[in-house]
Design a protein around this nucleic acid. Structure first.
Lengths: 253, 253
DNA sequence: ATCGATTTGTTCGTATGTATT
DNA sequence: CAATACATACGAACAAATCGA
């Protein structure tokens, strides 16, 4: 195989240099930068290259250019630099295990809030989605990754846009990963199990029982993880034990 | 006040147009695009403008340009378009309530995993941070938002880079929001409370008790939320009740 | 209110390096 | 090796927006 070391453009080098200038405090929030031509001279590049990197910085919300006035360091520059780093870490270099673990962390809680906050109308829409999935399942061999709509909508109904958007990108990454291919080979029984989970989850939401809904979601995702990685549960034993205790308690009542 | 409607650049219009082309499927994954000159002609812009938008698309991992070969639609184009949308939603338009709620969802779980996975060395480093904070607290009037380091490191020790990076940007947004200013006016007793929380949390981690550590972190963040928004707990009553039940149980043993 | 200086927005022409055939 | 196609990079120029005298 050829190594093909990606040659870095001048503009990307410039972006990194400018980010560093802001991080070190040389360029302060709200500060007016020199004109494009002056900066091009001091960075030893042409004005076009300078502009290319400025446009990238602008798109990330780090700089702000206004015709006739000049270029300024955005008020949210530092925040958006961190957002940019976060974006880089999101850029498709997460393992499937980590993606699933992230789902395990956020989805049960999102389900909890969705059960508390969603309207009756929204619950009905979830039932529609589910019935549609069942139909598809009967006709053709349905993929696990195709029932993601159900999860996406629950997350959205939580009203927490940060995490529901995060979940959206995570499910998207799972869809185009080996995870999706893997799911084509799983047993029919396992697939049916998934549908049952969704149904009982919806029923818990209809009863407006947020804790129950959350736990069903937890088990639902957890079982998916153990299918992929059976050794994962070593970390989770305590958590599951705790849940079982709670279930036993409730039965006593 | 002046409305100052931000005039959209040609390059940003181009970016949006190209994103749409990929979303509609007109530009497919891996596809080779026409040359820069040809595209510039068909989009009715100059080459430099074309290049500016291509550079942005490249930075977001949607397109991939290689000298001599051409420009291609990245394999991860669709994923990164969703990442880009997520990025836009992160760009400092989240309410303080939502930021804190997100902390409440992810931090307890991250603490749980950190307690399971971090090394003894890392726990010692947490104690160092804490002792440093205590010293600062004694000398000068210490801000709540200055003890974020403790939270950041715990999140990092969870080994879940997706959520620890997310927390990093969230804390950063809180730091530069009204939340930080608000914290300057809180009572000294409340600030001391925060330190005690951190100490008991660290002790739980040293005992390698993930569930306890998680619950302490939950209460710690929850109390911060109620200071800001005392009506928030209406949603949370169930969750807290459940926790109290568990605590009562353990005392019986 | 006009003019002029400054700065970004946009275009064109040209040269160079790189990869494919 | 030569020819071709392409991205990379530079320089000069004009248009449009902004601000101050």
């Amino acid at each position: 195989m050829i190594p093909t070391v990606k040659k870095v453009n001048l503009s990307t080098q410039l972006v990194e240099a400018m980010v560093k200038l802001i991080e070190t405090g040389d360029w302060k929030i709200g500060m007016k930068l020199p004109s494009e031509v002056d900066m091009a001279v001091s960075f030893h590049v042409s004005r076009n290259i300078m502009r290319e990197s400025l446009k990238v910085m602008e798109k990330f919300g780090i700089l702000d250019s206004q015709a006739g006035k000049g270029t300024f360091v955005s008020d949210t520059a530092v925040i958006n630099i961190h957002n940019m780093h976060f974006f880089e870490s999101l850029k498709s270099n997460s393992s499937i295990e980590m993606l699933l673990e992230t789902r395990l962390i956020i989805e049960p809680e999102l389900t909890y809030y969705a059960t508390l906050r969603c309207t009756d109308e929204e619950i009905r829409s979830l039932r529609d989605i589910l019935q549609n999935d069942v139909k598809k399942h009967e006709i053709l061999n349905f993929f696990h990754t195709d029932d993601f709509d159900f999860h996406v909508y629950i997350a959205r109904y939580s009203r927490n846009t940060i995490l529901s958007n995060l979940l959206f990108t995570i499910l998207d990454q799972l869809k185009s990963s080996d995870y999706a291919k893997f799911n084509n080979y799983v047993d029919v029984d396992v697939k049916n199990e998934s549908f049952v989970d969704h149904l009982t989850l919806l029923e818990a939401m209809e009863k407006r029982d947020p804790l129950l809904a959350r736990d069903i979601m937890y088990d639902h995702i957890f079982s998916r993880i153990t299918i992929i990685n059976s050794s994962y549960d070593t970390d989770m034993i305590l958590s599951r034990k705790r849940k079982e205790e709670r279930m036993a308690e409730e039965k006593e009542k």
